[in-house]
Design a protein around this nucleic acid. Structure first.
Lengths: 238, 238
DNA sequence: CGTGGTTTTGATCATAATCAACGTCTGTGG
DNA sequence: CCACAGACGTTGATTATGATCAAAACCACG
């Protein structure tokens, strides 16, 4: 768990359009700089925080990919999301000053540590930051509504199609290819997120390949017919 | 859509321990009073807000029960929660200034309308309110994690058992019986929330009755063996 | 006192889970 | 750099769970 105290300026961060300070004036942006206490590197398979840890900070992902997961009493666990550069994790800890899920790095990653009391302090003064914090939390709530829709009323193919399109879209927003992507997570992790077993994920990917919708080879995936995937989600377009 | 401009004081509301101003000092509590612009009555089957409505306010439920639901393009919809007295709805609207779900009253209900700009304004001054708003949003995120766990990795019996226990617990926190409750929602709505068809909900309830776990007659339900239900969720307790 | 929405129950079917075997890749240590 | 162990992924056969289709009973409400 390596940490650095090098000053990192949000105002010069190339993620600033995706991350915390979206929509801030330059003068405000400077004030935001000092909510980032430090950066922290998290290596593949390491946890940024875990269930039960005392909550102190939110984390903005600079590089890398994380999964978050919750565990039930009897050991089953459920992946609740995959997060990438510019996204904020740790919001679950606010309510009880304690984290209720694990955040695991899926590849070597780096985050900005933002002590929550500083965020609160500063967002009392900077209206745009206050608004932004509210939006981040609301966005997470809306995202989870989408996942509930996925899990509650879609079939395996639809879930996986929606997942792939969502992943590609988010990667594209970060400057990556619209169609080519590397799955940083295992089939089992995808399955856990989508409420499917790993065999079903594998089979469904194979089927998508047979149908000419995608090409997969291990973790490398290319979306060949993005429109076809979309059609799977909105069947028959009624 | 009837509204009343009668001044409602949070400081004298019997829900104040459950609702917005939990943990505030009396002097702060008085200041909170004027975030409640008015009350609004919503009759059974009416919508408090719907997908696409402009977001202006959060709503604290004074009496009654709501469901929230999201709709997919092709008309399927997914119940995302059932909310009762003291709970806050409308958080989904913050991120895009627009609601992304419908809130439907399951019985004649009344809410406190809290314009969000006033909440933001006041929470810049009253630290405890700021903290409370953050906690409400975080609590909703954590609740949804639980639903994802439910939908993603539990079987029908487990889902329904968890649902009934959660409902009973929340009603008990509001002064109702720990074991006796009235289901304000249909089997279909329960099914939508739990990712099951209404027939499965009905069958599973019947099975619980055969097993002596509950007694059901229409919407009236009594939990006979709460420990037995709990055991269903944590199978074998390993 | 119908009428329509809701609920129950039965029979059958579809989807994804499970069990199993094998193939492939990755990373580690010699 | 290679060999090996263990994790990861694919595919097939079978099963279990819950969905679907169908019919009847029940209730609430106008």
């Amino acid at each position: 768990m390596k940490t650095e105290n090098i000053k990192v300026a949000c105002s010069s961060c190339n993620l600033r359009e995706l991350c915390m300070p979206v929509g801030l004036e330059p003068t405000e942006l400077q004030r935001i700089d000092d909510i980032v206490a430090k950066r922290r590197k998290v290596r593949r398979r390491e946890m940024l925080f875990r269930n039960g840890d005392r909550f102190t900070s939110l984390y903005a992902i600079r590089t890398g990919v994380f999964k978050t997961r919750v565990a039930s009493q009897d050991g089953r666990d459920q992946v609740t999301g995959f997060q990438m550069a510019g996204e904020i994790i740790g919001l679950d800890g606010i309510v009880n000053d304690q984290h209720t899920c694990d955040a695991v790095a899926l590849e070597d990653s780096e985050v900005c540590v933002m002590p929550f009391d500083r965020i609160e302090e500063l967002s009392r003064e900077v209206t745009a930051l206050q608004r932004h914090v509210h939006q981040i939390m609301s966005r997470e709530i809306v995202r989870e509504h989408g996942v509930m829709m996925l899990l509650g009323s879609m079939r395996a193919e639809e879930r996986l199609a929606a997942f792939l399109l969502n992943l590609a879209q988010r990667l594209h927003a970060r400057g990556f290819s619209r169609s080519e992507l590397v799955l940083r997570m295992t089939r089992e992790e995808i399955g856990s997120y989508l409420g499917l077993k790993l065999e079903t994920v594998s089979r469904t990917l194979s089927k998508f390949m047979d149908d000419g919708l995608i090409e997969v080879q291990q973790r490398n995936l290319r979306i060949v017919d993005s429109e076809g995937l979309r059609r799977l989600i909105t069947p028959a377009a009624c």
